[in-house]
Structures are given as C-alpha cells and as structure tokens.
C-alpha cells in the first residue's frame, strides 16, 4: 500500500542513508500493487460517445467556482488551439480542472477526449508529496489538504498525466489546483461528479469501479469492432479510478500507450535519486517538511494509521 511504502521511504530517508536505501521501498512496492478500496467509485469515459460539446467543462467550472472562461463553453474553436509549437493540446490548469480535446485519428472520425485527474489507485502525487497533503479516499477520489501544501510542486513533476497545477496568484500561498472528483460537494454524499451529471451523451459512466470493468468489457464484447479491446486505466500505473474506452489505439488520441502497470512511485524515486542536490539535503528536507505538516495539520495521530489514507479534514480544495 502506498501509505506504508511512503512512510517506510520517509523513515529510511530520515535515517540519513538515502542513497543505499532508496532501492528497498521500490522492491516492496513492486511485489504488491494496491488494488484500491473494493467499493470505490470510478468513471468509465467512452470516447465513442463523446461529441465534444464541452458541457462537462462548463459544469466543472460552475461546481468548483472557477474563474470565468475567456471563451464561452460552447465555443468549438478551442479544439484548434495548440501550444509548444503545435505539439501540445489544451491541458488542465488552475482555471480548468477538465478539458476536452479533439483528435483526428488516421482516416477516421474525430475523437473527443475529456481529460482530468484519473484518480490513481496509487497516486504518484500522493506518494511523492513530502508533507502528506494528498489523500486517496475510500470513495476513490484523490484529494488534498491546502493547509498542508507547501507549494514545492513535486506532485506536478510526479504525475504521469500532467494534472496538478498551481495557482500563482500569490507567490507566498501557492495552491494545488486539480480535479477532486467533486469529492466535497458530491462524491462523499453518493452523488456523481458534476461533469457526469451534465453529459448529454452519457459518455461518462459513473459507478463502482469493479462494475465499470464488467460494463466496459461487455461493451467491447457486444459491440464488436466499435472498441479497441482495452480498458485504459484497468491496470495502467497500478490502476486508476477514471478509465477509458477508445475506438482507436490510445496513442492516436493523446495517451501514453505503455505507461507500465506499476505505480509511478518507483519512477519518481529514480528521478529524484538522480538529483544529487536534493539527496544531499534529503534528511533536512524531510524533517522540515514533516514537522511542518504535523504543525499545520495536527497530523500527529494520522501518521500511525497505516491502513487508511483517508482524512476527514483533508479535502478542502
């Protein structure tokens, strides 16, 4: 489980022998993938159903009280926007926790892809966070505690889907900004997220993750030729709560086709271990961040609860 591993990782690092012990937790992780809370919820995104109406973006904006958009939500010219010399489509940021992009796979109809946090079973953002700001709730959401976040942006680097963003409105009070599965206003009360509720095409199916896998497989079976025989997120990166069905190979619609089935934490540590500067100040960093976390959130007891990452108060976004 991510929690145990992370703490083991912390403890090991604190012992001051960072370089030699970094390999140990990686091994522990690889041997047991956390398959998630059994009754946790998820969303199955069916790319064959999405018509690119962007209603889900509008619903998210309203639900999360995000700033007014530059263009109306029914403006389809956004699908032509590209960044970084045409290599990148729109991404989620501090003003938009979900975006829909249009892809034109070879010789086929356009495919619209809604993007948001995928709410990983073993979230890299959570595992990489020094101050334990993130929580994976039993309902399936990956949420965070803004009071604890110190704005180090490690989660931004760690996320394999480039999801967490920051609000830069105040240099001294940076805040993580990302989709929280409408946890506070809806999910924890048994309600679907706002985007799912609004979608005219039922392109987003909300349900228990284990049921969504059955539903997804049934769709693939009963509509021969309509789908690629693959549910993206079933195993990718240790599994995600949001999963995708596609009519075309996933790399044609902006997905990394082979992210591996291991949670990303292993890679994060590899990445971090190549930064000697960080390694040198490792123990000091951890002590500092942990003290900070305890002080700011009163997390003293929480740390011993190794079975659950759930934190009732950890959800303000």
């Amino acid at each position: 489980m991510s929690g145990i591993s992370r703490r083991r990782f912390l403890a090991a690092s604190l012992a001051g022998c960072a370089a030699t012990t970094l390999a140990a937790p990686k091994k522990a992780l690889a041997s047991g993938i956390f398959t998630g809370y059994p009754e946790s919820m998820g969303v199955l995104v069916d790319l064959t159903r999405c018509i690119g109406c962007r209603s889900c973006e509008a619903a998210c904006n309203a639900e999360q009280n995000l700033p007014d958009p530059l263009l109306p939500f029914d403006d389809k010219s956004v699908f032509d926007q590209t960044f970084h010399g045409g290599t990148q489509k729109r991404r989620t940021d501090e003003n938009a926790y979900t975006v829909v992009n249009r892809y034109n796979p070879e010789g086929g109809e356009p495919v619209y892809v809604k993007k948001q946090c995928n709410h990983c079973a073993e979230p890299a953002c959570l595992s990489s966070c020094f101050v334990n700001a993130y929580t994976k709730t039993p309902e399936g959401a990956v949420i965070f505690n803004k009071k604890v976040c110190v704005g180090c942006r490690t989660c931004m680097v760690a996320c394999p889907f480039s999801i967490p963003a920051y609000s830069y409105s105040s240099a001294f009070d940076p805040l993580i900004k990302k989709c929280i599965f409408c946890h506070e206003t809806r999910l924890k009360n048994g309600k679907p997220p706002a985007c799912v509720d609004i979608c005219p095409q039922e392109a987003l199916t909300f349900g228990k993750r284990k049921d969504l896998l059955k539903i997804g497989n049934q769709r693939i079976q009963t509509h021969q030729g309509r789908y690629l025989d693959h549910i993206y997120g079933e195993n990718e990166l240790g599994g995600t709560s949001w999963m995708y069905l596609s009519p075309v190979p996933f790399e044609q619609v902006g997905f990394d086709p082979n992210p591996g089935n291991e949670p990303i934490i292993s890679h994060v540590k590899d990445f971090l271990s190549t930064v000697p500067m960080v390694l040198a100040i490792w123990p000091a960093l951890f002590v500092g961040f942990q003290l900070l976390a305890k002080k700011q959130a009163g997390h003293g007891d929480h740390d011993h609860d190794s079975e659950k990452q759930h934190d009732e108060e950890g959800a303000e976004q």
Binding site: S55, A58, A59, N61, A62, D68, P69, L70, L71, P72, F73, D74, D75
Partner: peptide, 16 residues
C-alpha cells in the same frame, strides 16, 4: 449563463 455566453472572448454572437 451556464455556458458563459458573454465571456469576454466571445464573438458577440453568444455561441450558437
């Protein structure tokens, strides 16, 4: 209002 018909970058036509 929900679709932000009058967003500042809108063409003035108010969407569709």
């Amino acid at each position: 209002a929900f679709y932000h018909k009058n967003a500042i970058g809108s063409s003035g036509a108010g969407g569709e």
